[in-house]
Nucleic acid binder design. Sequence first.
DNA 1: AATATTGGAAAGTGATACTCTCCAAAAGTC
DNA 2: GACTTTTGGAGAGTATCACTTTCCAATATT
Lengths: 233, 233
Amino acid sequence: MWIAELSRQSDVPVATIKYYLREGLLPAGEAVGATRARYDETHVRRLRLIRALVEAGGLSLARVRNVLAEVDEETRDMHDVLGAAHGALIPTDLSATDESRGRVDDLIAEEGWQVDPGSPDRVLLANALDALEKVGYHLDDDLLKTYASAAAQVADSEVAGLPSDDRQQTVETTVLVTALGGPVLLALRRLAQQSASASRFGMPKRLAPPSAPRGGQPPPRGAPPPRRRGRSR
Amino acid sequence: MWIAELSRQSDVPVATIKYYLREGLLPAGEAVGATRARYDETHVRRLRLIRALVEAGGLSLARVRNVLAEVDEETRDMHDVLGAAHGALIPTDLSATDESRGRVDDLIAEEGWQVDPGSPDRVLLANALDALEKVGYHLDDDLLKTYASAAAQVADSEVAGLPSDDRQQTVETTVLVTALGGPVLLALRRLAQQSASASRFGMPKRLAPPSAPRGGQPPPRGAPPPRRRGRSR
DNA sequence: AATATTGGAAAGTGATACTCTCCAAAAGTC
DNA sequence: GACTTTTGGAGAGTATCACTTTCCAATATT
């Protein structure tokens, strides 16, 4: 297909495609003569991936470029993919106090996680903790552990659901899940916060109470019985 | 204190303070004569809050302005604070398919959450689901529920830890926890993903490529027993 | 032959978040 | 009282980002 068709199928303006081409985000098409190039399905896919990362994932083009470089890195084995994708996904120029780094290291050790000691996420997390501290808010160990166990649950499910047959497929899905699952998780957290806030700070005036006020007993949201198929208690 | 002192205490350049003043992010100081104004502790606090939101929370100044407007909205009662803060925290120009909206509504109902039917987070979440769908990735119900219960755990702890004595204090903490807890949760999730990936995709040949091969702790060879609360399928 | 499309490059645009330069009034210093 | 410094305020300038526009000459299509 020519560029016009690629534009139609991907829903990205021709001018923008040319820009991505120039920026190296999209590989060049197969040149046919001096003024024509042919594009294919892989270009459509790539374009959709870029748009998803930018629009839904909120990544900058620079970040997207890094991520795509990892996606295309054929030599990397499966295991490295995630760490590499993360390195590409997050900023690198961070600093953190030893205090917070220590907390992060301790937490990882306590949770029994296997994480590369050089993972930039360690620093990123320590940095975030420092930022909180700086405005006078100390995130206590209990809450931190709550975060950690919630994060572990989510991560386990996500990683378990990753396909493992086609490498390219796996890498793309990994990137997608990591980058776009974030917004999903955060949106759910805010929704849950609103619900928790409603329970704690009393009756809404205009919330349309769906049912009886659930007589004082806060719903057992802490660990809801996973009503997975089969065994229900 | 004069502006120079405010700058020193908040670690924000005078030029930037003036800019925030102009942009209405920071209330004007008490004018003393035509060329002088006095600032106080509240200005230092406000400045630190702004920087935390911008630097650690990644918010744009426009978003920060919205958030601060809510922080200053004295008339709102505690319960509304969270929803209002969220409205200020997230983008508003979103669209979503009825399909995804339905999934979100169903999920909220199943979880038994009390959420304002008009909450922008509903649309935001539906939108994120659509984005995933658009790149050919369907986030299945199991994973969605995993996200939801993890989100609920986190949210419950966060809301439970909110102070309730001083209103101003509560609002500020709410904003801080919501905006800065996100990055923390996401960083932990990525760390946990790396760990889960290590378990699933087997032993790395070289765990820390950038640094020296640190002969130390080669992670379990062979099939490492997933030593975390099961969920690996 | 006339019209349309293409790849490529350069320049322009609009938003964001500052940063710099000026200024005259006021405050502090000698 | 002369001199220096600081201040508030306003405007212009800067850098980055992510495009979008304009232009071109070389093809393709009709």
